[in-house]
Amino acid sequence: MKVTISPDVFDKLPDFSLGVIHYSDIALSESPKMLRGRINLFVESLRIEHEPAKLTEIEGIREWRAAFKRLGIDPSRYRPSSEALLRRLIQGNPFHLVNSAVDVNNFLSIHYALPYGIYDLSKLSGQVVCRLGTETDAYEALNGREVQMKGKLLLADEEGAFGSPIVDSVRTSVKDGASQLLQVIFFHPMLSVKQQDEIIGSTARMLTEINGGEVVFADAVRAIS
């Protein structure tokens, strides 16, 4: 599955990049006790170390809020998904368990304070592009709302928008039986190439350690200099 970034994104975020991982033969299940324990320990440490009012001190949160502003998106109205999840957890809400792939994806999102998306490849059509939304871009989101994506950073295939660093769609969500997955990490511009590559590698290792399967492709998509 080829993923590209539209020039209109680089016009506003010249150093923007994505981490893209394609998995095959994934075996979804309920998250194992080991993963649930690791998530619980991490969430407990978050609540001890951070207050909701000071979340912007975390680099990933601070930098993605700044990136949203450069894109013309109000980060207080449309929060990056990683910030929204961290904020809910620090406020005392539980980590919502879905399945072994989605739970790893969400855990890594809070661990690195980066927006992560994971999608069922069988529900995607053609090539995927990361671009800015138009007036016709909208979808039913995982939060139960119909979201309008005009002017927002998003992922789209031949059928239209399906994901973003704000919230993903129901259409491409990962449910029982999905075995071919596409995972996208939205990197902020302050992360070095080395840091990005390390995050991609650790992400792919953890997801396959929990879910089996193979990594078909794992690399960063960046501007061509």
Score class of each variant (00 low, 15 high):
His50Pro: 00
Lys2Gln: 14
Arg145Phe: 05
Tyr139Pro: 02
Arg222Glu: 11
Gly60Ile: 02
Ser192Pro: 00
Ala156His: 03
Ser173Asp: 15
Leu132Gln: 07
Thr208Arg: 11
Lys150Arg: 12
Ser169Phe: 08
Val167Tyr: 04
Lys33Met: 06
Glu158Asp: 13
Pro7Cys: 15
Ser122Glu: 15
Asn40Gln: 15
Ser45Met: 06
Asp168Trp: 02
Met149Gln: 05
Gly72Glu: 04
Glu159Gly: 13
Phe186Met: 10
Val128Ala: 05
Ser122Ala: 12
Lys54Ile: 04
Val193Gln: 11
Glu198Pro: 00
Gly177Thr: 07
Gly60Leu: 03
Ser169Gly: 14
Lys150Ala: 08
Arg79Val: 00
Ile39Pro: 00
Gly201Ile: 03
Arg131Asn: 08
Cys130Met: 11
Ser225Asn: 15
Ala138Asn: 10
Leu191Phe: 11
Gln196Met: 15
Arg79Ala: 09
Ala138Gln: 09
Ile61Gly: 00
Ser202His: 10
Ile110Asn: 00
Asn40Cys: 10
Glu51Met: 05
Arg87Lys: 11
Arg70Phe: 11
Pro32Ile: 05
Ala101Leu: 03
Val102Pro: 00
Tyr23Lys: 08
Ser31Arg: 01
Thr4Gln: 15
Arg171Lys: 13
Tyr116Ile: 09
Val193Met: 08
Gln127Ser: 13
Val174Leu: 07
Tyr112Asn: 12
Asp8His: 02
Gln195Val: 03
Met206Pro: 02
Gln180Lys: 13
Asp15Ser: 15
Thr136Ala: 14
Lys2Pro: 12
Phe42Val: 04
Ile21Glu: 03
Ala53Gln: 10
Ser24Glu: 13
Asn211Val: 04
Gln180Tyr: 09
Leu108Lys: 08
Ile224Gln: 14
Arg87Thr: 09
His188Tyr: 11
Leu142Arg: 08
Phe187Trp: 02
Pro32Gly: 11
Ile199Cys: 07
Cys130Ile: 07
Lys69Gly: 03
Trp64Leu: 08
Ile200Val: 13
